[in-house]
């Protein structure tokens, strides 16, 4: 269960404590996140909502190890990641995080199979094992018949499903989704959200998702509202019921 009070929750997979994030733009200092604390238990599906500039994506980037906080602590699976070096964070991301972006961000020169295989190239898996994992991931997202297609030959929804397959293929600790349906039509968006829900419910994946779409957020177990770098509201949904 998500807690935002900063009290210790021994079962939390992700523990964020009093993180501050400041940027400097010229002479102006921008305080993006202010003393934010958060606990996310394993297997939870959390949606972050809030106006532009509220700090949603910054929070996601910090939890995903793409950036480091100005102060505060982030522990994932008991490991303090805010003190890791850049190289250590890169290796940590490869093991623990599956990213899903708004624009899919597939490599256009690679087929769907090759795009999904990318994270596995960093492992010691044999070619045959990699193939098995990729086929399983593409089959899970319903694209086993599109393996040899290039991103330009896929629809938006299919492209995002390939991105989801790439995110889950290495079996990461959790998934980070930044506006995963922001570039899709309503039908495709629904399919993607159903897929994410299934990953959470049926496969126990921990998912953190940033969205502007209330309907998309409804698929999560918990919706957290941010404003000016602070968590202002927590809403439990019925999605998991």
């Amino acid at each position: 269960m998500v807690r935002v009070d900063g009290e210790n929750n021994g079962r939390a997979l992700i523990q964020v404590r009093n993180i501050d994030m400041k940027y400097r733009r010229g002479s102006e200092e921008i305080h993006v996140l202010q003393g934010l604390s958060l606990d996310v238990a394993e297997g939870e599906f959390v949606a972050f909502m809030g106006p532009s500039g509220s700090g949603k994506t910054t929070l996601l980037n910090l939890i995903g190890g793409l950036d480091t906080p100005t102060s505060g602590s982030i522990r994932v699976g008991g490991e303090e990641i805010s003190e890791l070096s850049s190289a250590e964070l890169t290796a940590w991301r490869a093991r623990n995080v599956g990213f899903i972006f708004q624009m899919y961000n597939l490599l256009p020169v690679l087929t769907a199979f090759q795009n999904v295989e990318l994270p596995l190239l960093l492992t010691k898996l044999s070619r045959a094992d990699r193939r098995r994992h990729v086929e399983a991931a593409l089959s899970l997202v319903g694209l086993e018949d599109r393996m040899k297609h290039y991103p330009s030959q896929l629809s938006g929804g299919q492209g995002q499903r390939v991105a989801i397959a790439r995110a889950i293929v290495a079996d990461p600790t959790f998934l980070l989704c930044d506006e995963p349906t922001g570039d899709l039509d309503r039908k495709s968006a629904h399919e993607i959200l159903d897929l994410l829900t299934a990953l959470s419910k049926e496969h126990g994946k921990t998912i953190l998702m940033v969205t502007h779409d209330p309907l998309a957020a409804e698929h999560a177990d918990t919706i957290l509202h941010l404003d000016k770098g602070e968590l202002v509201e927590t809403v439990r949904t019925e999605a998991r019921v």
Binding site: L66, T90, A91, R93, A94, V97, F99, F101, L122, R166
Partner: peptide, 14 residues
């Protein structure tokens, strides 16, 4: 640039 960023995001080292 975006593609390179994605590679780095998913764990490709510098």
């Amino acid at each position: 640039v975006r593609e390179l960023a994605v590679l780095k995001a998913i764990g490709y080292s510098d």
